[in-house]
């Protein structure tokens, strides 16, 4: 799948371009494989299924992109998703009049969790991996203690969000794309977005340039948790009950990180964009769909996913190492010393 990409290493093409090239290849391969199973890949039903598959991971991956761009990580997203679905479900309790209350409380709590994550990362200087792993464990303990199983119920009006389609496009995917556009605008057009990139690529330089290094990191974590909360609400709309295990079952923490990195964002931060992430999410959704149509064993799906992640990222990593123009290459301290010695 990836060999044609390696062949083009000399062509100046952005990493987002590669992502969409891979996506196109996946689509072609998917169409061929689906046709071989005697089905139509581009039937409205199938396209709708693929787009539905992108929406939940899409929400979480957009948030995860922000956090990774800021040079941090968020492993607490699955628990935030579960918590949001439970809180909203229990508060709504089947009453249409309670929808607003449920949504506001669920998103508010999610944002609060993100705020704590961000403050721990930015002010206490705890690695994002540990801070969010710890937060995830705290939430897991809370969920395990207070909820023995599914709880709450979503009113019919709220369930419509998960069930309505406009043409072949589900409303949930449209909401996700709307969030993506907002985040893209945030990153490209606002000062906060530029600061986010600056802090993520080199915090020390950003600090010396007079930025508040804490603000972008906290903002990224708050938005990430907020988007995870929205994913939880969407799951509630689909399943009509809140579930304490829905997030961890989906493995959204590691899968979202994989989608972000598959989308060409550098795991160390400061480089990448939302479009690439959407491409990464779409690649996963198409792969899932094709393997579903071909009735691949669900456990083998994980094997394919794992291999694709490593191979795809290996392609980007090789490419970016070979293509960076020399003047942008950071000259190391030791190198400079050696040159002076000569």
């Amino acid at each position: 799948m990836s060999s044609p990409v390696t062949g083009r290493r000399r062509v100046p093409i952005t990493s987002t371009g590669i992502v969409f090239l891979v996506l196109a290849l996946t689509l072609v391969a998917g169409a061929v494989l689906t046709a071989m199973s005697g089905r139509n890949f581009f039937s409205p039903g199938n396209i709708s299924a693929i787009l539905t598959g992108t929406s939940i991971l899409g929400f979480i991956a957009i948030g995860q992109t922000l956090v990774i761009l800021a040079g941090s990580l968020d492993l607490s997203v699955p628990y935030v998703t579960s918590l949001a679905s439970l809180l909203a479900g229990v508060l709504m309790a089947g009453q249409t009049s309670n929808i607003v209350l449920g949504v506001v409380v669920a998103l508010g709590v999610s944002a609060l969790i993100g705020l704590v994550n961000g403050l721990v990362v930015a002010l206490l200087d705890v690695h994002g991996f540990i801070a969010s792993l710890g937060m995830g464990l705290i939430l897991a303990g809370y969920l395990g203690t207070n909820y023995k199983g599914s709880a709450g119920s979503a009113p019919r009006d709220f369930r419509l969000i998960g069930a309505t389609n406009i043409g072949p496009v589900p409303v949930s995917t449209l909401i996700m794309l709307g969030c993506a556009v907002l985040v893209i605008l945030l990153l490209r057009r606002t000062r906060a977005g530029h600061h986010l990139y600056a802090v993520g690529s080199n915090r020390e330089v950003a600090r010396m340039s007079g930025l508040h290094t804490a603000t972008p990191v906290v903002m990224a974590h708050v938005l990430c948790s907020l988007l995870a909360g929205m994913a939880g609400l969407l799951l509630l709309a689909r399943l009509s009950v809140g579930s304490p295990t829905i997030g961890s079952q989906g493995g959204y923490d590691l899968m979202s990180i994989a989608a972000v990195v598959l989308g060409g964002t550098v795991l160390a931060g400061g480089k990448g964009n939302i479009l690439g992430t959407l491409g990464g999410v779409a690649i996963f959704a198409v792969m899932d769909n094709v393997m579903g149509v071909m009735e691949v064993n669900p456990f083998l799906k994980d094997v394919v996913r794992g291999v694709v992640i490593v191979v795809a990222v290996a392609v980007y990593a090789r490419r970016s190492a070979g293509q960076r123009p020399p003047r942008f290459q950071k000259q190391s301290l030791t190198d400079a010393a050696l040159q002076e010695a000569r």
Partner: peptide, 23 residues
Amino acid sequence: LLRVPSFIVTLGTMLALSGLVLY
């Protein structure tokens, strides 16, 4: 050698191995 971040490499091995074992 491939310069893939170890987080991603071992995530991939984790998915592949556990999937294979369960399969």
